[in-house]
Design a protein around this nucleic acid. Structure first.
Lengths: 341, 341
DNA sequence: TGTGACGTGAGTAACGTTTTCCACGATGTT
DNA sequence: AACATCGTGGAAAACGTTACTCACGTCACA
């Protein structure tokens, strides 16, 4: 069987007895098409099952495609953001396409360039680790919104969670339960720019600040590893080996908390009987019965919603000054934290 | 500042003092370019930082884009498949773009059409629920590989896990531990075609068959709900209400097992002391210390690898007969299953 | 010395849209 | 009655690439 040539705008125009210009106008709801024309054309489109080629469109106008770059696929928190994005785009002609990157800078460059090459109308970068320089370059080529990375730029909008405040919520909660020796596991970061802009650094700062605010400056104790399960495991081992063991561990991310729980189990301890444990992100598994992790909800859905709103806004008017949206996190209390024994 | 017009193939040609045809040939490593020509052109490309426009390419030739459709983003098993895909594509010019769907047929249609509209070179559909008719239609428009759905077609290749055998592994394991009352929670399916093709149905069949092979036909007990946490919760409640309670529950998916564990906790029971629980998929959280779920590893990485291999193969020679690859699952024994008390 | 094949490169016509004009008739205004 | 304005629709020129075709020189062979 033949793969039967695709229906083009020319076929539709011929079938409706009008010009291709007219069909194009109707497709885009553009100005200059009378109601009768609209009806005639829409009928022809329907009848022939016409769908415009995005490639051809991209050559002149828009592609109606929004790109989303994720640092990884396994953190369900990103799925929440995505949900916010797609939900808001559901009624429109836009389509979201994602690319997951390997958490390294080269991968991010590859993906962003691929999205620019494919003339996407706009892109959303989630927690990018690339240099500022690269982000600027991308943002100048195509409307861009950066999610989950602090700091602002004249070229792209940002949507972040108030990580500083979120860390404070956790400390407040633990202090209210009577804890004083509250330790933190952070993601080690050396690059000075990223140190300012990445959420992990803000969480560590928020932790320090809140501890001091409670007069617990002397109990500040931080293990520097990575935001991975392995990092949580190693960090907890470090903390458990202290001469004075902490009574609570605030892990910078839920996945880190999983590693902490592993280390506790291995040491014959359990949460919250021996040590309270809190995470950050409110990922799907934090809610599972056997885990039931106290954590911080970042309102990923809201972040996605705001990101795409800003993006469409910028697509419409590229000149407008950039905006920074900061959302407030909320504490989710579950069963891994309890009053000090 | 001006967004400075993109560098085009014409700029490169002019800069190198050759024709655009020559540049195009070099870009694609096509036949008919002498070594000196190659060097000259590559130098110009480098110097100008030229990157071809995928939109323009798509209008005539390839877009070097592979689309992957996922039923959802929260199941980390799909991330394994993706890893296999991107790894194999790492060295090539191809770029993977994903779209996550809402687990409904309309969403799948929207995504597949969007991918066709964007003239992707090939698409990989992961566990699609669409009608066969739609799959065929898609596959005729663009090279397609279907992953995680049984049944074969003259139009698309398939890569699946041997779900029937995988279910058998679980039953064998539980029987070896002394269990006889082994219940199963399946995803209810009415559509007769999907009943044959979807993995969930195969798992249920494998369960039945294995039970009978062990002479336990009388103990076959199935709760029909859905492959969700909620479905697991409800299914477990049904099973716990039986006059003769099962001693083991085989959930058709890890996420279902999470719901089962929730229901057990609520009923004051625990695994494996009171009831053994097994899942399917070996998702990330199955490995978490506090959960430690016995499950079946589907070798997602291998599935992705094979899928993309088949796809590139088909892109190269669209005519070849379709292939069906079936991979073997392995049992991962953890702490939610134990000898019968 | 023709003749055919081959390797190399260029010219040009697509590919399917959108955009920028411009023409035309109707309508309103002086 | 002359003239600007407006609404409508079409012609044609982009957009940046690849595929097709052809010309030219070189080489091998009869």
């Amino acid at each position: 069987m033949h793969p039967s040539r695709r229906v083009t705008i020319i076929d539709v125009a011929r079938h409706a007895g009008v010009s291709t210009t007219a069909v194009s106008k109707v497709m885009r709801n553009a100005y200059g098409a009378s109601p009768e024309m609209q009806i005639k054309v829409r009928a022809a489109i329907e009848e022939l099952g016409y769908r415009p080629s995005a490639a051809a469109r991209g050559l002149r106008g828009q592609t109606y495609t929004i790109g989303v770059m994720l640092p990884e696929m396994r953190n369900p928190f990103f799925a929440d953001i995505l949900d916010g994005v797609t939900e808001h785009l559901g009624g429109t002609d836009y389509q979201v396409l994602m690319a997951a990157c390997c958490n390294d800078e080269a991968g991010e460059v590859r993906i962003t360039e691929a999205m620019i090459d494919r003339s996407m109308d706009g892109i959303i970068l989630i927690a990018p680790i690339s240099s500022r320089r690269h982000l600027q370059k991308v943002a100048r080529a195509v409307p861009t919104v950066v999610v989950g990375r602090h700091g602002h730029s004249p070229d792209y909008d940002t949507v972040t969670d108030d990580d500083f405040a979120g860390a404070g919520l956790v400390v407040d909660h633990l202090v209210a339960l009577g804890h004083r020796r509250i330790a933190h596991i952070e993601h080690a970061e050396k690059n000075p720019v990223r140190l300012k802009e990445m959420p992990n650094a803000q969480r560590a700062d928020g932790y320090r600040h809140a501890m001091q605010a409670h007069g617990l400056g002397d109990y500040i104790d931080i293990a520097s590893t990575t935001y991975t399960q392995q990092g949580g495991y190693l960090g907890a081992q470090q903390l458990l080996a202290r001469p004075q063991r902490p009574t609570a561990i605030f892990a910078g991310a839920d996945i880190v908390a999983m590693g902490v729980l592993d280390a506790l189990t291995e040491a014959g301890l359990s949460a919250p009987q021996d040590i309270s444990v809190a995470g950050y992100d409110d990922t799907m598994f934090a809610a599972f019965g056997p885990i039931s992790l106290t954590t911080v909800d970042q309102a990923g859905h809201q972040m996605g919603l705001n990101a795409v709103r800003l993006l469409l806004d910028r697509v419409a008017s590229r000149g407008r000054p950039t905006a920074q949206i900061k959302l407030s996190p909320t504490l989710i209390t579950r069963r891994t934290t309890a009053p000090i024994p």
